[in-house]
Amino acid sequence: MTIVMQSAVQVIVDTLTDPAMLLAAFAGGAFGASLGALPAFCFTGFAVIAGEASNLALDALGDSNAITSEVIAASGITGNVAFGAVFGPHISFAGGAAAAAYAAKKGYMDFGFDYHEAKNIPAALGTKPDVLAVGGLFGIFGLVITTLSANFAAPWDPIAIGVVLSAVAHRLVFGYDLIGDVRGGGILDMSPFEREEMRPAASDAGAMTDGGETKQRLATEPWLPHQYEWANVAMIGLVTGILGGFIALTTGSPFLGFGISAATLTFLNLGVERIPVTHHMTLPASTAALAYTAGAEELGTIAIVIAAIFGISGALTGEVVQRVFYAHADTHFDPPAAAIVVNTFFIAVLAMVGVFPSSSWVPVPL
């Protein structure tokens, strides 16, 4: 245990004292801010698809190690681009979300967004130096958190925890409430939105600018107005969970379903209504299916059922998180990232107690 701990600490020190890595993380966070957090994440999805297609092609050509989790994490398009300094969500997406929080606080954003402008993650923030610098610094912060989590084998997705803690950090650093003022019948109650109730105009953050005009804000602001009702959320979780499990079991990739889900958000970013957000459903589902089969890629009914359960769990966990940390607050707090943390933790625990023969790619403490 001591040797393992010393090795982990050395890897952390090497990473966090590597000027090239720190510069790359800064640039990735700044680039994510310039594009906007959501557009940057869409490119994460495309890069994952490209990386996993490359790994599958290598596997088809006879490289038996082409799609192992170690290779995916260490090299290639998936590891270095999609989950690395260029489009890693802990760097580019988290940096973009933090930059939006900062830009809104400084009064730079006035795009007519329906909610507080600090939640406007589809918006590209351009080239303003201080905004990009904030994105870059939070890119480095995301790298630090993810490196610590991965090398100490914390039992959850190290990238997702980086996104979550970065959101907590940007709220604290820029003076936003962590949860916000709860209205209605409780923290999980979305009925004020359904009744179109408004916040008191004189309250803190009760009003916002909209194209130069001031208007009141909704009392509660659902993360996705078309995807918040419990039954609907559970149903899309069931469907995408099955598909995520099927993709994983037939390709051996725990990440391809996630990449497809992330890429579909391009349409949401372009304004297509009712596009569901599903990457927090497909990733736990894919991972759980492979953890249950211990990487044997057996397309069995039980594995698909387990994937469906984790798809539903990811969906409902994300909905709880949005009601607690998004709906009443002023900045973006990513429900999918939090749901992925929770559900990969479930997978790690099931592996540690012997219910699953492996945890797939999810770290487990030695």
Results as ranks from 00 to 15, higher is better:
2 T>A: 15
4 V>H: 14
6 Q>F: 13
7 S>W: 10
8 A>I: 06
10 Q>K: 14
20 A>I: 13
21 M>S: 14
21 M>H: 13
28 G>I: 00
29 G>W: 05
31 F>K: 00
31 F>P: 08
36 G>H: 02
39 P>H: 02
43 F>E: 07
43 F>K: 09
48 V>A: 07
50 A>S: 11
59 D>K: 15
70 E>A: 15
73 A>F: 10
83 F>A: 12
83 F>G: 00
90 H>N: 14
90 H>E: 14
98 A>H: 11
106 K>H: 09
114 D>A: 14
117 E>W: 10
123 A>P: 04
127 T>V: 14
131 V>Q: 00
131 V>K: 09
131 V>S: 05
138 F>M: 08
139 G>F: 06
142 G>W: 00
150 A>T: 06
159 I>L: 15
164 V>R: 00
165 L>D: 09
169 A>M: 13
172 L>W: 13
173 V>F: 15
177 D>I: 00
186 G>C: 07
187 I>N: 02
193 F>L: 05
201 A>S: 13
201 A>L: 14
204 D>P: 12
204 D>W: 11
205 A>N: 13
209 T>K: 15
218 L>K: 09
220 T>W: 05
221 E>R: 08
226 H>A: 12
228 Y>L: 05
231 A>I: 13
231 A>D: 12
232 N>F: 14
236 I>H: 11
237 G>E: 10
238 L>G: 08
239 V>C: 12
240 T>K: 05
240 T>P: 06
241 G>V: 03
244 G>C: 08
248 A>Y: 08
251 T>C: 03
252 G>W: 03
256 L>A: 04
261 S>H: 05
262 A>G: 04
262 A>Y: 03
262 A>P: 00
264 T>M: 12
273 E>S: 15
277 V>Y: 03
279 H>P: 02
279 H>T: 04
288 A>G: 11
294 A>M: 07
295 G>I: 10
299 L>H: 08
300 G>A: 14
300 G>R: 11
302 I>V: 15
302 I>R: 11
304 I>D: 01
305 V>F: 13
306 I>K: 03
309 I>M: 14
311 G>Q: 10
315 A>L: 10
319 E>A: 15
319 E>R: 12
321 V>N: 10
323 R>Q: 10
325 F>G: 04
330 D>Q: 15
332 H>D: 10
333 F>E: 09
333 F>C: 08
334 D>N: 12
340 I>L: 08
344 T>E: 13
348 A>E: 09
351 A>W: 07
352 M>P: 01
356 F>D: 09
362 V>F: 02
